[in-house]
Every structure is written in C-alpha cells, then in structure tokens.
C-alpha cells in the first residue's frame, strides 16, 4: 500500500502531464482541471490501498475514463442545446472564448520569464511558436490516436499497458500510434515545421 508521501510524489510528478492531456482532449482549462480533479479524487478515494507501482496505469485509466465521461456529458448537453437553441441568447453577447488558436504567442511570454525556454528572446519565441503548433496538431488528432500517442510515448507505457488502459488490442494500439505519428509529421510538414 502506497504511503501519503508516495501518493504525493506520484501526483506531483503526473499532475501537469495529466492536465495537458485533458487540455488536448477538451480544449478548456477549467474543464481540464475538473477532469484532473475527478481523476485524482477517484484514485485517492478508491485505490488508496494499491501499491505505488500500480498507480500510473490506474491513474491513466481513470483519467481517460473521466475524459470519455466528459465527452458523453457534452454530447447530451449539446443535444439539449440544439433542441432549445432558439431560446438561448446569442453566443457573442454573453459567451467568452476559451481557446483562441490565433492568439499572439507574445501574450504568453510571461511564462517564459527566468529563461525557461532559453536566454535568447528570439529562440524563446520560436520555441513557444513551435510548441503551439505541436499542441494544435495534437489537438487535431482523432481521440484514440492522440490517446495512444500520449500514453505510449509521453507516459512511456509499453504496448500491453496502453492496450489495457485503452481497452483495445495491442495491434490496435500499434495502429493508432503509427497513424498518429504519420498524421503529426504530415501536419507539421504542412505548417512548414521540420523536426
């Protein structure tokens, strides 16, 4: 059984990546935070007696399920919204943009303070732009391909673990990963990014 410190270390090491994964999936910061919160609460509430080595795949499975739940909720909500859209006010009056793909990267330059992306401002800006392009490319990937890619390469899980988390065969994981890599490479080439 994992101790409090082990749980704390695990959550600390995984929270940012989990947040990013949720962000790629839902494209909304507050919803992504909600998903991470749901996953963490479920992990600590229901699986506190699990050993620490079982936590990463468990947490990933819970996180992916939370993302799927979000999609299901969104689907039913959008159905209701479509049905009652005539009674709702126009979006541009009360709505607000959660994500703006054309936003100026300089607006987020404050996060690079302290030389996080390098000392040279020109390099830092290029790096931020490149990251934005890659994040957009990842967001544009189909859900399963993105899930397979992130679990396999970012979370460094093996094929069988990824297959267990995704609830599919190992062959499907390989296919999703291969397609995701090709799609990412093609998207980045189209945008003039050479890796």
């Amino acid at each position: 059984m994992a101790t409090r410190q082990e749980f704390s270390d695990f959550l600390k090491s995984t929270e940012l990546r989990a947040f990013k994964q949720a962000m790629f999936a839902v494209r909304d910061e507050s919803m992504a935070l909600d998903i991470v919160q749901e996953a963490m609460m479920k992990l600590t509430g229901k699986y506190a007696d699990k050993p620490v080595e079982e936590l990463p795949p468990l947490f990933q499975r819970i996180l992916q399920n939370a993302i799927y739940d979000h999609y299901r909720r969104q689907k039913s909500q959008s159905l209701l919204t479509t049905l009652f859209s005539a009674f709702l006010p126009p979006l541009n009056q009360g709505g607000h943009d959660h994500y703006d793909a054309d936003s100026d990267p300089l607006e987020t330059m404050h996060v690079a303070d302290g030389g996080k992306y390098g000392e040279n401002p020109q390099t830092a800006l290029e790096q931020i732009e490149l990251i934005a392009v890659i994040e957009k490319a990842l967001e544009d990937l189909p859900l399963r391909q993105r899930e397979a890619f992130l679990l396999r390469y970012w979370e460094e899980m093996d094929v069988s673990e990824t297959a267990r988390i995704m609830g599919c065969s190992e062959g499907s994981v390989k296919t999703h990963c291969s397609r995701a890599v090709h799609a990412l490479a093609a998207m980045l080439r189209n945008k003039g990014v050479t890796l």
């Binding site: 996060v111 890659i134 990963c177």
Partner: peptide, 16 residues
C-alpha cells in the same frame, strides 16, 4: 517525430 514531439511537450509543461 515522436521523440521530438515528446521533447517539446515536456518543454511545454514549463509554460503552464
């Protein structure tokens, strides 16, 4: 491609 993407994703964590 995957290695480079992962590397950049790791860097993007600093931008949160």
């Amino acid at each position: 491609v995957e290695k480079k993407v992962v590397e950049l994703l790791d860097q993007s964590l600093k931008g949160v």
